[in-house]
Amino acid sequence: MTDRNPKDDRSRKRDTSPLTAHRGMATWGEKLVPLAEFRKATAAVGRELSPEEREAEVAEFLGPPVDPTPVEGPFSKVAVFGGVYNNHYGLTALLDDAEARGVEAIYCLGDLGGFGPNPNKIWPLLERGGVRTIQGNYEESLASGLEDCNCGYTDPRDNHFAEISYRYTASHSSPEFKRWMGGLPKRRRIRVGERELLLVHGSPRRINEFLFHSTSPAPFLEVLLTQERADGFLCTHTGLPWHRRLPSGATVVNVGVIGRPANDGRTEVRYCLLEDRDGRLGVESVELGYDHRALAAEMRREKLPEKFVETVLTGWWTTCLEILPAKERHASRF
């Protein structure tokens, strides 16, 4: 873009007094040039397409990917959950609760490990319940032997605890379990009543994308669904459940997680019930109680961080908080 030699610019003296330096002048990189010269240069570059060309560009940019995922169903009532985080007490409670509610199928959106104790207890429970599971970033990382959970955190404070969780789960999961994780699909499609819904871990486009309620605007979700040619999608990954009905009539649900509470001061965890109600899609976020004291005791026996145990016992997150957007952080105790 620039063929300036930086040395040339450094030798060029300029008035560095901030109050006078730019009067009538523009900064072009490290040079000062007359404003008119800068504006003339910017006017001369960049594309200015015709209205028809712009339509064509947008159509190509938003073009849908080819998705050969088969559609399962149709169902009239299903349970969808995510983020087990090794909480076998929560998973046991979920299987009982979903069965009692008469669901036709149970889906898991991934992240079986992390946070809690004894990961190998999860696999037999999933088999027992006939749970149809997709890969989360945890399964993807464990199956491919990565040294990192690829959770997508950016703050060192979040990554510190994410590393503790991942190291524990990686060293306590059997090779057979990890191999099984590697064979899981990354997405599924289901039909509930008339609606075709996409099931993903993070988002339709990335396994570790965080979709929080306050940072997943309706127009953005509409574009994702248009690209996927679906009537809605369900995801997890963030740990916080929400549900948004879009102006088009489509539905997006973050089902939350059953591995730790929803950062609301309650010890219950959340999962989602989908039900066809005479052509309308019913979405219910179910509060699920489980033996959280037994989970806390087992976590202490496994010497997992006391901060994790505190979350289980109080319902407030104590770790991995920096990823929260402003609104969700405002509602958070810590």
Binding site: M1, T2, T42, G46, R47, L49, E57
Partner: peptide, 11 residues
């Protein structure tokens, strides 16, 4: 100036 790409987002 050469960081400029267009007039509208579609450009």
């Amino acid at each position: 100036p050469e960081g400029k790409m267009g007039t509208t987002l579609a450009d």
